[in-house]
Structure formats: C-alpha cells, structure tokens
C-alpha cells in the first residue's frame, strides 16, 4: 500500500468518525505479561463508555468477552478502542483469548 493511499484512507476515516468521538467517559486497561491491569474495571451502569486497551507486551492479544459480545485483536505495543455499554448493573468477565489462563479480568457496572 502506498503512503498516499494510506493518507487518503486516514483522512476519510477521520471524517467518517468525527461525530462518534464526542463526550463519552474513557477507561484504560493495559496488558502486561499477559495480565490485564487493572483486572477489575468499575464503570457507570447504563452509560456508553470507551475502553482503551493498550497492549504493552510484544505478543498480540485478543480482547474477548462472551458476556459483552466483544472481540478485538490488539497487536503487541498497540492501543485499541472498544466501545462498551450501556450496560445494566452487573459483572461482565472478559479475557485475552490468546492467553486465557492468565489474562482475565472483569468489568463491574454500577
């Protein structure tokens, strides 16, 4: 892919996406040594939030949750955005599909 083509795609993407950016609470979760940090994220119930997942490992990870219906591959060293909610109050576990034993966490909506 040429640089120019990438640039055009980028410009289109920014235009396309503008309206959705505004005004949603943001949360951060990091992946370090196949662990979610923090492993418990408390978010407001019935509100759409933006969850930034930054993978600080060199290996990729797939953020996955059956309860939240989310799956997204986050490459090593990459920061990705996932929209979550609005959720009714409760606990929503998530895990890293590539390392499900260690990468576990949950979102608590309250």
């Amino acid at each position: 892919m040429t640089a120019a083509f990438r640039l055009v795609l980028f410009a289109v993407s920014v235009l396309f996406y503008m309206p959705a950016i505004a005004g949603k609470p943001e949360f951060e979760v990091a992946i370090r040594q196949h662990l979610f940090e923090p492993s418990v994220i408390v978010i407001p119930a019935n509100t759409k939030i933006k969850l930034w997942v930054s993978n600080e490992d060199t290996t990729p990870e797939e953020f996955e949750s059956y309860e939240l219906n989310r799956e997204k591959v986050v490459l090593g060293g990459q920061r990705s955005l996932i929209f979550i909610g609005p959720l009714p109050a409760g606990e929503y576990p998530f895990f890293g599909e590539f390392n499900p034993k260690s990468a576990q966490g949950k979102i608590i909506a309250e």
């Binding site: 892919m1 920014v14 591959v73 986050v74 990705s80």
Partner: peptide, 16 residues
Amino acid sequence: SQLGFISSLFGGIGQE
C-alpha cells in the same frame, strides 16, 4: 500482517 494499520483506520475502529 496489515492488521496494525487496519486497526488504526477510522479513529481506531478500522478492524471492526
């Protein structure tokens, strides 16, 4: 191999 670039499109929702 292009997933990193694709993900960054559309303000981070390119993959979707």
